[in-house]
Design a protein around this nucleic acid. Structure first.
Lengths: 132, 132, 132, 132
DNA sequence: GTGGTCTAGACCACG
DNA sequence: GTGGTCTAGACCACT
């Protein structure tokens, strides 16, 4: 579910931060649910434990997880509303980038909308069909 | 027109690569048109000429520009069709990411479409109104 | 084993690229074998680390080596067949040049063949005799 | 007959030096025969006249051509024996490089000889057939 | 420890 | 004037 792209220029620890953040937001780890231990995650992702520790520290700073001495890391309590706001903000930003990009490319808004609808449906059918 | 974000984690020279790439794709530098000299760009963006040189070299590797000894760097000839393909691929990728994100967030496809339409129109009106 | 010719018109970093390329092709660094660190190579060859870095980056572009963050550079996995093809192509090109040259010089093909055989045997005996 | 490769890393003026040298060696310009004027060559090769001038200066230094005030450049008198020696030296050097290369590649001398013979004959038949 | 980026400043070859 | 190469030395992120 959480994959590291070694070739990417973005640091591994940040990839982990993003990945865990998404998992928390998506409800994989409900509030106060224990996360995998640093050692386990390190083995699973084939990454140095220090790297996981750094990622967790960052997640702690962002108040997305909290630690209990000797017990590990736990998902913070996040309101559903808060999660939605985060997602909406993220999506809005990305849509904005796409619209700018389309503007530079000289793609008309109608074509863009059409393209979006197409991908939209492809994805829908894929989701309906293939339960990976 | 081309701004450097010093705070960004992405290296300056890559920001320049992306920026110039966009400008070429958008037609700011038509095929065989001369780009600003390394020194000029360095002054304009307030970075070291070596940094610009690295960016230009990368652009050369990607065949987006070519060099004539002692004369400077020139925009490569890129077919309009090619440019469109590039843009479409980029946009398709990003749409795909958004759709995945929405799926994780539990946002329904209808809501997503609605959100898109809204941003879409905001952007349209902004574009119509403000001639920068 | 890898020597820099300061007098040569070909840039130092390209000399290094060629040298390392040869070493990899010749099997000095088997697939996934770690190369010397940039700093070490710089000390050994008495050039600036940046110069080595530039060479390594070029080797990376050519997919002859790859990098693991914080660990160093590693020889890419290259099929023996691929290596042979590279060598054959290189040799064929050079033979072609020689044949053209001989044509211009008015050297008959028989004479050329004879010359080749002669050098051939000189080299053989030298190789048999002197184990450096 | 004399082509400039703009993409090559070797300077244009050196490409011209090599080209003219070959033409002289091959007898295109017999001893004391007048070479094309700098201006004409510049137009023909689509190159800056300064570049041709630099090439001619270099050829003069190498005693391959000489100048007569107001009349232009002339091919130097070169003994046939001298020309042969030059060619042989050049060819021998290149053969040596190929043999070294083959050694590194682990190509046996027999295979190398075979490869040479093959190219040899291809070239012969091409030459016999196509008078470009 | 590793490679990656950046700056500063120098020199060179080319046109 | 152009880009290309090289040095020196600094700082950073990752392991």
């Amino acid at each position: 579910m959480l994959k590291i792209d070694e070739a990417s220029p973005v640091p591994i620890y940040l990839q982990i931060v993003e990945g865990v953040k998404r998992e928390i937001m998506a409800g994989v780890y409900p509030p106060d649910h224990r996360l995998p231990s640093i050692r386990d995650l390190a083995l699973e992702l084939k990454v140095n434990p220090n790297t996981i520790a750094k990622a967790f520290q960052e997640l702690g700073n962002q108040k997305l997880i909290y630690f209990r001495r000797g017990q590990g890391a736990f998902a913070a309590r996040i309101e559903k509303e808060e999660r939605m706001r985060t997602f909406h903000a993220e999506i809005a930003t990305r849509f904005g980038e796409i619209i700018d990009l389309a503007g530079e490319a000289g793609i008309s808004h109608d074509d863009l909308l059409e393209l979006f609808q197409k991908l939209f449906q492809e994805c829908s059918s894929k989701k309906a069909g293939g339960k990976s």
